[in-house]
Simulated assay, not measured.
Amino acid sequence: MSNNANGTVNARDLSIASRGGGSIRGTLRTPSADEPLALVVIHPATAVPERLYAGFSEYLAGQGYAVVTYDFRGTGRSGAPRAVRGLRMRDWMDQDVPDVAEWSAARFPGLPRFAVGHSIGGHALALGSGVEGLRGMVSIASHAGVTATVPALPERVKVWLTLSVAGPLTGRILGYMPGKKLGLGEDIPAGAMREWGRWSRLPGYFFDDPTMDASERAAAVTGPLLAIGFSDDPWATPQQIDAITDHLTAADVERRTYSPAEFGVAAIGHMGFFRRGLREGLWPQVAQWLEERRHG
């Protein structure tokens, strides 16, 4: 592992042309003192801004990795959602994810490559998007987002109202879902909101969408995958994480479920892995998993 762990990190803005039109804005972080040892691309969650991943990407860059983070089109720095109102979730998975993966691979052609997918970012990896040539993949809180499986009734009602009522309604009126006002992160295009809501009502999520060929795609994915979940995540329960990984029949899947008590924090939930409070406890475990496969 690099001896740059306590050093500074270089960062520069990226703009990557998308095969679906427009551009994807992101950030490349690299060790300041050494040549990178490997490449990690972090694929984001729905309605989650790139800045959430800054701390973890800086940490990995300090360990010797080149790290790419970005916003999906129509979110954050990658454009206004109303301007791409018809953009769907599958477009993020099947266009943005491989676009960023291919740009990153071309930028660092000789390095071992890895991917980290948060929620929908992990879905894309499970469906084989952006996985070519990877040494390993890590999915964080990536689950089949079926509303009926949310354990707590108040949270289940809140999710249903957002995904099946408020989100689609505001999408039709405004051209986007005002995620900030609805308490679901960033604003997102109406097309993504409609697809998200429809999948959330299917018992098998997008595996029950015949236009996705999801089961066949997942069965073709190979290589090591570390799938991480958290005991206090209100949405990504172990069963719903398994509902994704069970389809990865050709991959070498390792499942881990952590609790906040293991790291002396009050909560982790769906977003907490990427917060800096876990820098000394949980992040090194993922870095070690990557390091072991870098040498493999």
Results as ranks from 00 to 15, higher is better:
G26N: 12
P284V: 12
G26C: 11
P224W: 06
G272D: 14
P81H: 06
V131G: 09
S57Y: 10
F230L: 12
D96M: 09
G117C: 03
G21V: 10
V165E: 02
A54N: 14
F72Y: 15
S164H: 11
T222P: 04
M271T: 09
P284Q: 11
W92H: 08
L153R: 06
G7M: 01
A166F: 03
L161V: 03
A126F: 04
L125H: 13
Y176W: 03
R255H: 09
N10C: 12
L225G: 08
A66E: 11
G183T: 07
P49H: 11
A266S: 15
A148S: 15
V286F: 02
M93W: 13
L248V: 05
T257L: 15
D99H: 11
R201Q: 15
G175N: 03
P284Y: 13
A251K: 02
W283E: 11
T237E: 12
S259A: 15
D233A: 12
G110I: 00
I16G: 13
G269T: 03
L60N: 09
P36W: 06
M212L: 09
L52W: 12
I140D: 05
T245A: 13
N6K: 04
V146A: 04
A243T: 00
A287L: 05
E50P: 02
R276S: 15
G296T: 04
M137Y: 00
A45V: 06
W92D: 06
R29S: 15
A220P: 08
A80Q: 12
L127P: 07
A236E: 10
M212H: 02
W199Q: 05
F263R: 12
A220M: 10
V150D: 04
G86T: 14
P36G: 11
K181D: 04
M1S: 10
E254I: 03
W103C: 11
P49D: 14
D91H: 12
S78M: 13
S57G: 15
L153E: 14
N4C: 15
I228M: 15
E132N: 14
A144E: 02
F273C: 06
R198P: 01
E292Y: 01
G264H: 09
F114V: 13
V67A: 09
G185K: 06
F114H: 03
R12C: 14
R275P: 06
